[in-house]
Design a protein around this nucleic acid. Sequence first.
RNA 1: GGAACUAUAGCUCAGCGGGAGAGCGCUUGCUUGACGUGCAAGAUGUCGGGGGUUCAAAUCCCUCUAGUUCCACCA
Length: 870
Amino acid sequence: MKLKDLPTKYDFNAVEEGKYEFWVKNGFFTAGDLSKKPFAIVIPPPNITGKLHLGHVLDTTLQDIVARRKRMQGYDVLYLPGMDHASIATQTRVEAMLREEGISRYDLGREKFLEKVWEWKEYYSEVIRKQWATIGLSLDYTRERFTLDAGLSKAVSDVFIRMYNEGLIYRGERIINWDVQSKTALSNIEVIYEDIEGAFYSILYPFADGDGGLVVATTRPETMFGDVALMVHPEDERYQKYIGRKVYIPYTDRAIPVIADAYVDREFGTGVVKVTPAHDPNDFEVGLRHSLERPLCMHEDGTMNHLAGKYEGLERFECRKRLVQDLERDGYLRNVEKVIHAVGHSERTGVIVEPRLSLQWFVSMEKLARDLLEMQRGEGKVHFIPERFEKIFTNWLNNIQDWCISRQLWWGHRIPAYYRGEEVYVGHGSPGPDWVQDEDTLDTWFSSALWPFSTLGWPEKTPDLERYFPTDCLVTGSDLVFFWVARMAFQSKYLLGVRPFKEVVIHGMIRDEEGRKFSKSLGNATDMMEIRDKYGIDSLRYFLTTAGAMGQDVRFSEEKVEAAWNYINKLWNISRYIGLKFSETAYRGEEIDVKLLNAADKWILKKLNETLALADEFYDKYEFGEAAKGIYKFAWDEFASWYLEMTKVVFSEGSAEEKTNACAVLRHVLVAILKLLHPFMPFFTEEIYMMIAEESITKSPWPEINPEFDFPDAKRIETVYDIITAVRNIRAEKDVSFKKEIIIELQIRDPEIREFIVNNLRFLQRFTNYREIMISDAEIETEQKSVTVLSEAVLAVPLQELVDLEEELAKLLEREQKMLSEIERCERLLNNPGFLSKAPAEKIELETNKLEDYRRQLEEIRKLLAGLRG
RNA sequence: GGAACUAUAGCUCAGCGGGAGAGCGCUUGCUUGACGUGCAAGAUGUCGGGGGUUCAAAUCCCUCUAGUUCCACCA
């Protein structure tokens, strides 16, 4: 299609059609041009659990903006795609699907189950790829990776083995967060704490050797079957006498001792604590100090075991309910106090996490964190944008705990550990026939932590690794600073000795129109495809990435997506106008002839230079909202509202030569705008650019400032604009239709400006529609005239029958007051010795010039007032 | 219990040391041959309150208030 044949309305469906396939097929996104400087950015691999949502669109669009701009700036850009197997999330989803068919993973067995998950993976990775295409991400599919690929799996095993051999991975019994639904351990950060209502139950443990007993408060009474002691503070005078005595656990025949430990807070509760080493991390520590047994009272699925006696087999909360009823009936329950307390829930399944003693694999974090913090103090640190996220990152590392990495799941990287009796072997492959491999898999983040280098071929020394690592930039959400960013950072430092990326850009979360988080329970998730189908993906991309400051949450607003559509429609029509002019003038793509430029041309070219500087400054700082705002102002207010209107004069009355040159300027500016906006709206800009340049914009060079266009007199045309604006105001105020011709009088003192206006009257004529214009430096007779004072001129329009003298007087008086207050402000500044001695010279000069200008204007106003009154 | 973020025009948000901004909405007029329009005009906004630093503070520091979030959590 030709530019001139564009329909009047921006049709995003037609625009988006086929472009992505065209880009990918032609290898525009394939990295590897060795003649250029490399630039690498990896995608945060989405989970293969389902469709992408608006958060992904924001996240990946930000990356795409960076990648596309760098590519245009002449870099060999690698934007590497890939997906995450997401062990627990995916396994949970697949199990849920199977459950609907009435089968469990145990019915299928490990192998058959994994086949099912791989089928799921094939399906959803295709869904995700389609969505990447919809979003328009400039990904290099020749390098796509999956965390369970052979290469990445090899990297995972290698790292595990190396860390084990170097003592950074160990196996041990610890209290971990247990997900009773998935029957797996969780790491600390996979637990979400929520305040829920519970109760402190005060329970009497009767003495085994006499009357009475001790009262203990607990929120989890069902764990009492795992108690091995009661504990009091050694100096607590209330209880000292009981230390060493024994109490019965109610409903059992087990007697447990009363011990003393300074860990007890005498002020809290009754001052007596039950010790349950297998179900509480603090009690576990106490148990170690006092060499206590560590009995578990629950099965892996959260039901009670034989220790619970008559409650055996009951689900833990059912047990709690029945137990409390029984305790009350039998007089053991001394008090119930309702409390709101934070209870851990599994991030994936949502069930309440059970702290549970269990044999698991851990990463010892102390050294890794210390080395990383050391790196962050030096030159080779990871830079956070915005900077404040580094503090959050550092705080976390300073308070880090060992990382539980084993998961009792099937979907994931199998732990390369083998057992024969008490013997443990860690390495590639089984050491012999009578060895058994660990059944467990690794935390999904263990492989994600290697993502920036495992995807490039590490541990092999591949050319890609050599060329693109460390990567240049990582863009991710604030929720992943701990989960992912920190782990990539310490693994990269540990394994490769350097940072994984130079900069990490952290963006906020997307919220709904009311500012709430998107969540399944609220059902307020907006479907990305729904919005795309309504406004096109470019509008959505533009809105999401320009809606606010980096790091700040984005509130979704359909109105703003629509505003983005409006903007693109405006640009569309700008292009359409230009296409029509090209066609009318038979423009053949001639270059700009500087000698032929008129005042408006010079102005817009100078403004373009300013916009390029501003846009680059903000793009470089990842302040896309500000960059976009500057481009918007230029494209809409300056280019469309003023310059395009001025070209209408040239096209209707200019010479053929001048028309051609106007086309050249229009083309030049439009191309620059398209390029500046291409990172935000790739489809639209490609559509128009293709029609103008007949090549893809994706690989075109980024626009640069042309010093030749920094015309010193570029601002002069603004006097014309001021006059036009003033006339429009007068027409509006006096309700005079544009069709009615008027007489204009101009008083301009400066001879150069007077000459300039005389030479550019055609621009004035078209937008003021005067019948007669008088320009001189003579003072204007104010009677029966509407008068406006501009900084360079005094404008008068005689409108005998319409002018209200009182009104004019009032207008001028108001103007006088305003001017007086401005002058007062300037004078106050300039009479302040502190200001004169301490303010920068530039600022002083600026204020001095302003004062001069204001005084001149005030003089004009006063003369007019005198005339009007006299 | 720590920590961070936010508080600016009716709404959603930019700005973050030198005269208060944008989008949307609303009111009014015009619509001139690119435009689901566009152009023009219209906001008495204590830039959350109070201190401080500075010649100069919406902008930096302290403090208070309100809200959001993260981390750590005592049985």
